[in-house]
Every structure is written in C-alpha cells, then in structure tokens.
Design a protein around this nucleic acid. Structure first.
Length: 106
DNA sequence: CACCGATGTCCAA
DNA sequence: TTGGACATCGGTG
C-alpha cells in the first residue's frame, strides 16, 4: 500500500489532461515538497501502472527524463511513444511545444 | 560545457 | 534507529 505522499503524487498526475505534460518540478511545487526526487521515486514505484500516466511527467528542461543513467533506454522510448499518441510532440530530445506543459492551479 | 551539492521521501539492515 | 539511494534542479568553475 502506497504512502500518503505517493497518493498525492498519483492524484496530481491524474490531474494532467490528455495531450499535456508536466514536470517533476511542478509536481513537487504543487505537492509543496520542494524535492522533485521524492516525486520521481513515487512514480518509479508506480504501483498504479496505467492508472498513473507517469509518461506525462518529464524533467524541468522539457527533456523526457526517465531513469538517471538510462536516458535513451526503453523507459524513455515508451514515454515518447505514449506522448506522441496523445499529441505531444518531441524534437531533438526535448519537448517541441512548451505550451503542452500543464500548470497546476490553486 | 561539466561537476557538485541541496532537498524530501522511501527502503533495507 | 541509522544509512543509503532516487525517474531532479540549480548554481558554480
């Protein structure tokens, strides 16, 4: 069973509408935790596989992010594939349209 | 351009 | 209870 913090992260990710993406930084800021790494760890566990669209979460540089050291592996590829299916386009390894970024309100 | 530390949470011994 | 690790970010050299 996930912790309360993880539940918050998953809930925030589910708030991201289709065709839009967010960054660990924004998630952390919305969760008021100030540490994107904590959010990344929560997504890394991701016990709610398809229920939590972790592929809609990218790095603050608009890069796909993915595992630290496996950038270019299968995890990132899957993210790009799913995002591409949602209308989010990537270019040169970075988000092509920054307006696709979703900002949390309130 | 490259390297290092900071920050919050989770997992294991 | 303590130590180590993490799908990051920002600043400095």
């Amino acid at each position: 069973m996930p912790t309360d913090f993880e539940q918050r992260v998953y809930r925030a990710v589910q708030q991201v509408p289709r065709g839009r993406v967010t960054t660990y930084r924004l998630l952390a800021a919305h969760l008021r935790c100030g540490s994107p790494r904590a959010v990344g760890q929560a997504l890394r566990r991701n016990p709610y596989a398809p229920r939590v669209p972790c592929h809609r979460v990218i790095a603050a540089d608009l890069t796909p992010g993915g595992f630290r050291g496996e950038t270019g592996g299968s995890t990132v590829k899957m993210k790009l594939s799913l995002l591409s299916s949602e209308g989010v386009r990537f270019s040169h390894g970075h988000l092509a349209d920054p307006r696709c970024l979703y900002a949390f309100e309130t």
